[in-house]
Design a protein around this nucleic acid. Structure first.
Length: 352
DNA sequence: AATGCGGGGTA
DNA sequence: TACCCAGCATT
């Protein structure tokens, strides 16, 4: 039995049933792959169905306004994925006659498609023999061959790509790649892998040499930075003001309340409204204080309710909207949570 | 080669 | 808490 045959037999017996399995439409395979970038399968499934329902094909996606795409993506995170997919859809519509490109090099050129996603689409949709190396495969292969190099390095990743090129079953590249990822995702897991019933137990370096806990090797050096966001919820006759984020920063192109970012938690709302000549009918109140935890950021946010005599526009990019229209705009999770709380706040804060 | 980019599940 | 998820773009 070759490596590939052991793998495929295990896969046949153990594969999960997923919405995009047995899918042949490259568009849908593309959507599933992008959704699953740095995202767990269980987290992505609902978004996959929803996305396909809204944008059933590449031309529908290309024709949609960006805000609509972001709205469907709302809550999933890494929003550049949605923006890049939108751009790529327009590239396919305009330069490929709306037909998803059939060659690896053409697929790889599309915005938001890197080495992994290009190989995944090429192999799964078109059965082209490109090994798809994601985090699951890096872990599985580094353990199987006993590769102690830092898997964060491009050099190591390329080495593992070449290893997999020798293992891949060219005629069943799509199935092979999915099986490799499934092996890493469900059998060769990060913590407490199930070596006791693994078909590679007797041939795996890490299993034989008791090195499973030490592989893959990676150095963890992410620095978590604190940021302090003070959001202003102006309210006057069921109207408020929002703005679109356009800086090269977190939540790019999503909407939010007017924001005052401060270097520390220190923020005096009273002196701020005085400086800005904002006239309130009643004292501004802090309605919600929360800590929003991300992989590389801790965002300490405060939301202030400002019952004003007139809705102010502090900057050009801000727009005045009816409260009931707030939910039409794509927003980050933290703003979504604040909107959810508005209903609860209404019973406590008389001015809303 | 290193950093920024979300949000959530798991131990 | 720390880790990490069917990664990619930018610098």
């Amino acid at each position: 039995m070759t490596f590939a045959h052991i793998l495929l037999q295990w896969f046949e017996e153990n594969k999960r049933k997923l919405p995009w399995r047995n899918e042949t439409d490259p568009y849908k395979i593309w959507v599933s792959e992008v959704i699953l970038q740095q995202t767990r399968v269980v987290q992505g499934i609902d978004y996959y169905h929803n996305f396909i329902a809204h944008f059933p094909n590449v031309n529908a996606l290309a024709a949609a306004p960006e805000s609509e795409v972001l709205k469907v993506w709302q809550g999933l995170g890494y929003y550049s994925r949605a923006r890049n997919m939108h751009v790529a859809a327009q590239t396919i519509a305009n330069e490929h006659l709306g037909i998803f490109p059939h060659h690896y090099d053409e697929i790889r050129k599309l915005k938001g498609i890197g080495d992994y996603t290009a190989a995944a689409i090429a192999s799964i949709a078109f059965n082209l023999p490109y090994p798809a190396i994601d985090g699951n495969v890096l872990r599985f292969i580094s353990r199987y061959f006993g590769i102690f190099d830092n898997i964060a390095l491009n050099k190591t990743r390329k080495f593992i790509v070449e290893k997999c090129r020798t293992l891949i079953l060219p005629d069943e590249a799509g199935t092979f790649n999915q099986a490799m990822m499934e092996m890493g995702a469900t059998q060769c897991t990060p913590q407490h892998p199930h070596c006791e019933n693994c078909p590679f137990q007797s041939s795996c370096f890490a299993s034989i040499h008791q090195q499973v806990e030490n592989l893959p090797f990676k150095q963890h050096n992410i620095t978590i930075k604190n940021r302090y966001f003070n959001y202003l919820f102006f309210i006057h006759q069921q109207k408020t003001v929002i703005q679109q984020r356009t800086a090269n920063d977190i939540w790019n192109n999503l909407y939010e309340l007017p924001l005052v970012e401060t270097p520390t938690a220190e923020f005096d709302i009273h002196s701020f409204i005085q400086q800005q000549n904002i006239v309130c009918e009643d004292d501004p109140k802090m309605a919600w204080e929360t800590k929003h935890i991300l992989t590389h950021r801790n965002i300490f946010a405060k939301f202030f309710v400002l019952p004003v005599t007139k809705i102010p526009k502090l900057t050009q990019n801000q727009i005045v909207i009816d409260l009931k229209d707030f939910k039409k705009f794509p927003v980050a999770k933290i703003t979504e949570r604040f909107m959810m709380r508005l209903g609860e706040l209404k019973s406590n804060i008389t001015i809303i």
